[in-house]
Simulated assay, not measured.
Amino acid sequence: MGGIGVDHAFLALERELAVFLRRARAASGELARKVHPDLESAAYGLLMRLEDAGPQRATDLAGYIGVGKATMSRQLRALEGLGLVIRTPDPADGRASLVELTDEGRSRFSAVRGARRARYARRLAAWERSEVAELARLLRRLNSEQEADDAGHTARGGEE
């Protein structure tokens, strides 16, 4: 067979991921506004990371989220201005600081996150628990491989 054939499995994956991501972006905006009316949608994932992993350096957050230092600094200033995060000195390095959720930030985020989980539970009520676990496992694998690829891309100086 000459030429490159169309792989229908990857076409289907691309199509379904595009729909999923479009809906996820819209939902993130809605969820962010529920945390605080002035919160931009990109900040929801940042709050989730802080809730899950605890205090983090801004550079580590930028790497995890996949944004530049300037973007992260801008987002953190906005979150600080809303009273959702605070910076504290890093005990391991006095020149650096750690970003963490304030009590208000944790309270607001936890309430919204609980409502989001309940929505997932309702939407996936007909799924077997093993199917939900398999979906989470596959998404974790996809995210890990993307993170490794991104790290390699950065280490190569952005060259492909």
Results as ranks from 00 to 15, higher is better:
2 G>D: 06
2 G>S: 11
3 G>S: 08
4 I>Q: 10
4 I>G: 10
6 V>R: 11
7 D>W: 00
9 A>Y: 04
10 F>N: 02
10 F>P: 00
11 L>I: 01
11 L>T: 00
14 E>C: 07
15 R>F: 01
15 R>M: 00
17 L>S: 08
17 L>K: 12
19 V>P: 00
20 F>V: 15
20 F>T: 15
22 R>Y: 05
23 R>W: 10
24 A>I: 02
25 R>F: 05
26 A>Y: 05
26 A>Q: 12
27 A>N: 05
27 A>H: 06
27 A>Q: 09
28 S>K: 13
28 S>T: 09
31 L>D: 06
31 L>R: 14
32 A>G: 10
32 A>E: 04
32 A>D: 07
32 A>R: 09
33 R>M: 07
34 K>A: 11
34 K>D: 07
34 K>C: 09
34 K>M: 09
35 V>L: 05
37 P>A: 08
38 D>N: 12
38 D>M: 10
39 L>W: 02
43 A>E: 13
45 G>E: 07
45 G>W: 02
46 L>Q: 09
47 L>P: 07
47 L>C: 08
47 L>W: 07
48 M>I: 04
50 L>E: 09
55 P>G: 12
56 Q>M: 14
59 T>C: 04
61 L>V: 03
63 G>L: 04
64 Y>T: 10
64 Y>I: 07
65 I>R: 03
67 V>R: 06
69 K>S: 09
71 T>D: 06
72 M>G: 07
74 R>G: 04
75 Q>P: 01
76 L>V: 08
77 R>P: 00
79 L>T: 08
79 L>A: 13
80 E>N: 02
83 G>A: 05
85 V>C: 01
85 V>M: 04
86 I>L: 14
88 T>V: 15
90 D>I: 00
91 P>M: 08
92 A>T: 09
93 D>Y: 06
95 R>A: 14
96 A>E: 15
96 A>Y: 12
97 S>G: 03
99 V>I: 15
102 T>W: 02
102 T>D: 01
103 D>P: 12
103 D>E: 14
105 G>M: 12
108 R>M: 14
109 F>C: 13
110 S>F: 11
112 V>Y: 05
116 R>N: 14
117 R>G: 14
118 A>D: 15
120 Y>A: 15
121 A>V: 11
122 R>D: 14
123 R>E: 15
125 A>H: 07
126 A>P: 01
127 W>N: 09
128 E>D: 13
131 E>A: 14
133 A>W: 04
133 A>S: 11
133 A>P: 03
134 E>H: 13
138 L>N: 04
138 L>W: 04
139 L>Q: 13
142 L>G: 03
143 N>K: 05
144 S>G: 10
146 Q>P: 00
146 Q>I: 11
146 Q>H: 07
146 Q>E: 11
149 D>E: 13
149 D>H: 08
151 A>I: 09
151 A>R: 13
152 G>S: 13
153 H>Y: 15
154 T>A: 08
155 A>D: 12
155 A>S: 12
157 G>P: 14
159 E>H: 13
